[in-house]
């Protein structure tokens, strides 16, 4: 949505969108994690802050972790949506507007359906990144996969097995994501069109 905003003719929306994206894209994930966990509860109204701090153990860190990963991923996706929209020929928007569609309708029926097809491959890698980035949440004490592996290791000293298990689970989760996205890509593929401009955006 933010990505879409940044391609509209509305100057203030573009600037707001850019600010949001640049802030969250340029701060390392781990710093953001700390910000969400330690600083955010102090910034929000006191009652809400106290409530967050007093949440029972897994939740107290789960909420900031989800928020952090959510925002971090959303700005990366916003960036891709913007790139996807900008890669469409300018004439497409013109043709849509010229037939009497409003700006919003042009986005809904003409621009976004095409842009989303283009960014589907990079979106896949973004999904996989969220899963991998969840390991950073370890730093704020959330028992996610890497965390569990480390805990197990302390109990059992079976380092190798523990991390092997963690690796396999990460791999499997990502494999499922990849397969689902492939299926989706196949479903929306447009006959006669060869992966419209998909290649240049892929990979990071």
């Amino acid at each position: 949505m933010v990505g879409t905003l940044r391609t509209t003719p509305l100057a203030w929306a573009v600037r707001l969108g850019n600010l949001y994206v640049e802030i969250f894209r340029n701060i390392p994930l781990i710093v953001q994690m700390f910000l969400w966990f330690f600083v955010m509860p102090e910034l929000v109204p006191e009652a809400l802050g106290d409530w967050i701090k007093q949440m029972p153990p897994p939740w107290g860190s789960y909420v900031p972790a989800v928020l952090c990963l959510g925002v971090f991923t959303s700005v990366r996706i916003a960036e891709q949506v913007r790139a996807g929209i900008n890669s469409l020929p300018r004439g497409q928007r013109m043709a849509a507007i010229a037939m009497g569609l409003t700006e919003a309708e042009a986005y809904r029926y003409v621009i976004l359906p095409q842009a989303l097809r283009i960014i589907l491959p990079p979106l896949t890698s973004e999904f996989m990144n969220v899963i991998k980035n969840s390991s950073v949440a370890l730093t704020i004490g959330l028992l996610e996969l890497t965390g569990r592996a480390r805990a197990m290791q302390e109990f059992s000293f079976r380092v190798f097995e523990a991390f092997a298990t963690a690796t396999v689970i990460y791999l499997l989760t990502n494999l499922v994501v990849v397969l689902l996205m492939r299926a989706l890509e196949r479903k929306v593929r447009v006959p006669g069109l060869i992966a419209a401009g998909g290649a240049p955006q892929a990979g990071h």
Binding site: G91, Q92, M94, A95, M99, V190, L193
Partner: peptide, 28 residues
């Protein structure tokens, strides 16, 4: 938008909507 809907426009590069069939282009 209303005015534009009453004036047809044809472009140099066609600008058909590639994700829609010919008929969907005509009915949108």
């Amino acid at each position: 938008p209303k005015l534009r809907s009453r004036v047809g426009m044809v472009f140099q590069h066609f600008e058909l909507f590639p994700h829609m069939t010919v008929m969907q282009n005509l009915t949108l």
